[in-house]
Amino acid sequence: MIGSPYKIIRHIDRGRFIAQEISGYNIDIIEQSIFSRLSSCTADAINRKLEAVDQTISAETNEVFISLGENCGAAFQMRNSGINTLGANFFDNTVIRAEDIPNIISDRFRSMLSLINLSIGSWEGHDSVYDDFYKIFFHHYFIPGHGVEKYNEKMNCRQIDKEDIPLFLPVVRGQFEYLAGKFIKIANAQIKKYYVIRNVEGRAISEATLDRISAALTSIGAVNYDLIQVITYLDGPPISKKYGHWSILEEGERWGDKAEWLAYSQGRERGNSWR
């Protein structure tokens, strides 16, 4: 193990064991964030969770709202305003531009999170793991979570080392294989669903890009759905009249007031700005 970034570093004080580290993290943190979660990443465990999704879908009678990104804003506001999202979904905590979304959906997420495509990128000034194949940042992953992370004092940013990618990958991969399966199951279900997307900067998304997203959803068997974009600022592309939109200003709260999100989901301007 000499030279390995995963070697266990033992701290000894007067012959007494104090702590161990793996890749710069206390081994207790690694136990909690990785080792204790591996049992939930097996094929059997993922399939059991997907069977539970089937049961949830079959019992659902209300409309469902699913975030397509571009970042965590849409999912965060919908979830915290009480909008029905059926729990966590694939794009909730990733960052991917609208024009890249059709590729990963139409490919049914098959090639995501392959080690050869993963590198350390940067989003909003912090280290983030970037999947070059689908041009997607897994921005809130490959760290232990719960506020425990490495920090680069010199650069004043969160730090993820390249060795952290294969260390955390089994847990991240297991989580996203489940979320990919869930995404497809919801898409194929007959329940009414609205896919909601908000451009990171709050501008309108071009109709051509929305067309490609809709075509990608249809290609995986999505039925009984509409596509809605959330628009905050009007200095972007023209607002498509083909797709629904919610006009939510960004006043006092990042991504807009949660009450506004809830009001739109409950029917504000339904039949006018969205279907």
Rank of each mutant, 00 (worst) to 15 (best):
D132L: 10
I136R: 11
K241S: 12
F176A: 00
S247T: 03
L169M: 13
G145M: 06
N156R: 15
L169E: 03
I228P: 14
Y151I: 02
K193G: 11
R198H: 06
E250M: 01
D211W: 04
R212C: 07
H126S: 07
P166V: 14
G202S: 02
V148C: 06
D161A: 09
Y151V: 02
F133A: 13
E149M: 15
D131H: 12
Y243P: 01
W123F: 12
E250V: 02
L210Y: 02
D164F: 08
Y130E: 08
G244M: 03
I228H: 14
V171R: 00
I197P: 10
I160V: 08
V171N: 00
E207M: 02
R173M: 09
N224R: 11
G147P: 06
L249S: 14
I120D: 03
S214R: 10
I186C: 00
E124S: 11
H126N: 13
E153D: 15
P170H: 08
P238R: 05
T209M: 03
T218M: 07
R173H: 14
V171I: 01
I136F: 14
Y225I: 08
D226Q: 15
Y195Q: 06
Y195G: 09
A208M: 01
Q229M: 12
I248A: 03
T232K: 03
K193M: 09
K150N: 12
G121T: 00
K241D: 10
S219I: 12
G125C: 06
P238W: 01
Y194F: 15
F138K: 04
L217R: 08
